[in-house]
Simulated scan of single mutants.
Amino acid sequence: MIRSVVMIDGGHLRVLARKNKRIYDPVFIEKLAHACADPTQEALLRILYYDCAPYVGQARLPVSGAMVQFTGSGDWLRDLARRDLFAVREGVLKFRGFKPKRVPISPAALSDDDFRPDFEQKGVDMRIGLDIATYSDERLTDRIILITGDTDCIPAMKHGRKSGIQMVLISLPGQRLAPELFEHADFKRTIAWPV
């Protein structure tokens, strides 16, 4: 059996799942992760999930100046981390201000409802890259199965392949992956959404 590790870019997967009207929760993530591995040839060693807990903090609304409180819970990440074979690698979600919902904007009648909060994940790509390098350098696996759409992962994918690790890139329904990602994967595997 081929020793395999699944690595999931949670921010990327969440956007795809919501576009395809899927309920994004630990049950869904677990089903999808297990569907990525081929049980006839791959022994699944671990599932690494990379994401950020929701942002918690206050900010001033862009028009009225009123304070808004952002709340959320990372309990679902802890639930996921307790599941068999899962390890959760958390980055940090940063608040970057407000962006207009529609462009161009008309300054005549702006309200707070014309803007949405802008958040940015920090540290997730780096953690994926470090784990690919660690698993490759220490020969902890034979194959890395990757769910991402981020071309920032390409240097790590190259490193893994140079170390002799096979890279499998997962393609999901409704997803358009950057062509350069395919150039640095050994296999492309298309899977369906779990039911």
Rank of each mutant, 00 (worst) to 15 (best):
D142I: 01
L146E: 00
V68A: 08
F86Y: 08
F86L: 01
M67I: 15
S136L: 03
S73L: 02
I145Q: 15
V103K: 12
D150E: 12
K99D: 14
S73N: 03
R139I: 00
M126W: 08
T134W: 12
G149M: 13
S106K: 09
V63K: 08
G123M: 09
G74R: 00
R89N: 07
S136P: 12
L110T: 05
F95N: 09
C52K: 05
V103D: 07
I132F: 10
R127D: 06
D113G: 14
L110A: 03
T148P: 13
T134H: 00
D113N: 14
L110D: 03
L93Y: 04
V124A: 07
E138W: 00
T71C: 09
R83L: 14
V124I: 13
A59M: 07
F115A: 08
F70R: 11
I128Q: 02
D112I: 08
K101I: 05
S106W: 06
P117V: 07
R143P: 05
Q121A: 13
D142P: 00
G57H: 04
T151D: 06
A66E: 15
D142W: 14
D131C: 02
F119E: 13
G91R: 04
M126R: 02
D125G: 01
R116I: 10
S106T: 08
I132E: 02
T134F: 09
Y135N: 10
G91D: 01
R96Y: 00
Y135W: 12
D150A: 08
A66P: 04
R96D: 10
D84E: 12
V103L: 13
P54N: 13
Y55C: 11
D79N: 09
A59R: 14
D112P: 05
V56C: 12
F70D: 14
L146N: 04
T141F: 08
A108N: 09
V68T: 15
F95G: 01
R82W: 04
E138Y: 12
M67W: 14
F98H: 10
L140S: 06
P104T: 12
V124T: 15
Q121N: 14
D150H: 10
L77G: 05
R83D: 06
Y135P: 08
Y135L: 04
L80A: 11
S111H: 08
I145E: 02
P104I: 10
W76N: 01
T141P: 02
E138A: 09
I144V: 09
D112R: 11
R60W: 06
L77F: 04
F98Y: 14
R116M: 03
I105L: 06
V56E: 06
Q121C: 11
P107H: 01
A81V: 07
R96G: 01
S106D: 15
L61M: 15
I132H: 10
L110Q: 10
K122Y: 13
Y135M: 11
D125Y: 15
G149K: 07
I132S: 05
